[in-house]
Simulated assay, not measured.
Amino acid sequence: MEQNSLITIDFSMVIQMINFLIMVYVFYKLFSKKIGGIIEQRRNIATQDLEKVKIEQEKLEEQKKIVDKLRRESKKRANDIIIKAEIQADNRKEQIINNANISKERMMANAENEIIKMRAKAELELQKEVGEIAIKIAEKIIKENVSENQDLQVKSVDNFINEIGE
Rank of each mutant, 00 (worst) to 15 (best):
I55A: 04
K75S: 04
E114N: 11
I116K: 06
E51N: 10
E61Y: 00
I96E: 12
D49L: 13
R43P: 00
I87F: 05
K52T: 10
R71M: 09
N91I: 07
Q57V: 05
R77D: 04
I82G: 01
R43I: 10
R92N: 09
Q88M: 14
I115H: 05
K65Y: 04
E40V: 02
R72L: 11
Q63Y: 08
L124G: 02
A109I: 11
Q57D: 09
E51Q: 09
A46T: 09
K75C: 00
I38H: 07
M107K: 05
R106M: 13
K76N: 11
K54T: 06
R42H: 11
M107L: 15
K69Q: 15
G37S: 10
S74K: 08
L124R: 14
V53L: 15
D80Y: 02
L60E: 14
E94T: 13
I96V: 03
N99M: 13
K76Q: 11
Q57I: 05
E56W: 01
M108H: 04
I39T: 08
G36H: 02
L70K: 14
Q41D: 14
M118Q: 12
D68M: 09
Q88K: 15
Q63A: 07
D49E: 12
L50D: 09
Q57K: 07
N101Y: 12
E94L: 08
I39C: 03
E56A: 09
N99K: 08
A109T: 14
A85R: 12
I81L: 14
K65I: 04
I45A: 11
L70V: 03
E114V: 06
I81D: 13
I83F: 03
K52R: 08
L50A: 10
K104Q: 12
K121V: 07
K64M: 05
R71D: 15
E123G: 02
Q88D: 13
A100S: 14
E61W: 01
E61I: 00
Q95A: 15
K75H: 06
E40D: 07
E56N: 12
I102G: 00
E86M: 04
E105T: 03
L70G: 05
L60H: 04
K52S: 08
Q57H: 01
K54H: 04
I115M: 07
M107F: 13
A100T: 11
Q41S: 13
I66S: 05
D90V: 13
R106L: 12
E61T: 07
E112Q: 11
K93S: 07
N91G: 01
K104E: 04
R92D: 04
I87C: 00
I82S: 07
K52M: 13
K84I: 03
M108T: 05
I87P: 01
E114I: 11
A85T: 12
